[in-house]
């Protein structure tokens, strides 16, 4: 019965036939190597230590938001509000840095988690598709950011010390990169070694079966979106601290970039396949592409076009068409 849905897919079949059998992550790794080679040949500065640090710096932020996004996508949904959450969080952090000091970080993270929880609640309880829920809530979060401050907020110089949690160095390594590693480890453990992580995979793979097997699908879905909000909040505080400022459009580009990282890493939009490790590779590919294109002087916006095409190709390859009877 299920096979009926596959229908004809001539173009795809041909592409798939050739590359069948390899796990999705191998394409992403191949892509990573390919781009590194291209940029290393194309530019003398690409492989320098300084440039590697630059890549690491931006990768850490993208990693945080993508680590959250991948949980939303693993359930078969999508989170288009990560940009709004990042922006809101950045504004909250900068606004409260002076009175609260270090506690401003906790507050900002709590705001992001609450925002993600709200997404999850609307998506699972009111049964509204996640892309609409998060498209709408992205507007709400940005509005709140605007209401807190229309103008960009800068970190007061008295609080620069607090920002060292992100900007400082520990044992000669930049804290932001250590944070990136910690965040990766945290989300990796959540996905692989906790019941919630396993249930998210189950839900994405087969929702009906999960319910019949006693998984609380509302709870799991809500947790997935909360994790996405958490990831976006982490990215928001990291980016704001890095820039010493926060403003209501700060996170916008990260919507595209986080989704692109996830799908380029080979996580299927249908959910249930791929995950945190895939996304790590996807984030590396994205960071290398962005940086390399900057170095060899390709326009920022040409990069956006390139990523758009890359996303379409990645989805075309990884999307599991047998799971849906009708592709809408």
């Amino acid at each position: 019965m299920q096979k009926d849905g596959i229908g004809k897919q001539p173009a795809i079949k041909r592409i798939k036939g050739r590359v069948a059998g390899l796990p999705a992550i191998s394409y992403a790794l191949g892509m990573l190597v390919l781009f590194i080679v291209i940029f290393a040949v194309g530019s003398a500065t690409f492989l320098t230590r300084y440039n590697m640090l630059t890549i690491g710096n931006s990768a850490a932020i993208l990693l945080a938001v993508a680590m959250g996004q991948v949980f939303a996508i693993l359930t078969g949904g999508i989170d288009l509000s990560v940009g709004g959450i990042m922006s809101l969080v950045s504004v909250v952090l900068m606004k409260t840095l002076e009175p609260l000091g270090f506690w401003a970080y906790w507050l900002s993270l709590a705001v992001g988690i609450a925002a993600g929880f709200l997404n999850g609640l609307i998506n699972s309880r009111f049964r509204i598709p996640s892309f609409i829920t998060t498209l709408g809530s992205n507007g709400i979060f940005m509005s709140i950011a605007y209401m807190i401050s229309i103008k960009p907020l800068s970190a007061p110089s008295s609080s620069f010390g607090v920002l060292d949690i992100v900007n400082g160095t520990t044992l000669g390594i930049r804290n932001i990169m250590l944070l990136g590693v910690l965040i990766f480890m945290l989300f990796f453990v959540i996905q692989r070694y906790t019941i919630t992580g396993r249930n998210i995979m189950l839900l994405g793979s087969n929702e009906k079966m999960s319910w019949l097997s006693g998984v609380d699908i509302f709870k799991v879905r809500t947790i997935a979106f909360t994790l996405s909000g958490f990831g976006a909040a982490l990215a928001g505080v990291m980016l704001a601290s890095n820039l010493y400022s926060g403003y209501p459009t700060l996170g916008t580009v990260y919507i595209l970039n986080s989704i692109a990282s996830v799908v380029i890493g080979g996580t299927a939009m249908t959910g249930g396949a791929g995950g945190v490790l895939n996304t790590l590779v996807g984030v590396m590919v994205m960071s290398v592409i962005n940086n390399g294109m900057n170095i060899i002087g390709i326009d920022v916006y040409a990069q956006q076009s390139f990523l758009g095409v890359l996303v379409i190709i990645a989805v075309a390859i990884s999307f599991d068409r047998s799971k849906l009877s009708v592709i809408k």
Binding site: Q2, S205, K208, M209, L212
Partner: peptide, 9 residues
């Protein structure tokens, strides 16, 4: 396949 297994896993 629909109600008993997660075939992706």
């Amino acid at each position: 396949r629909i109600e008993g297994l997660a075939t992706d896993l």
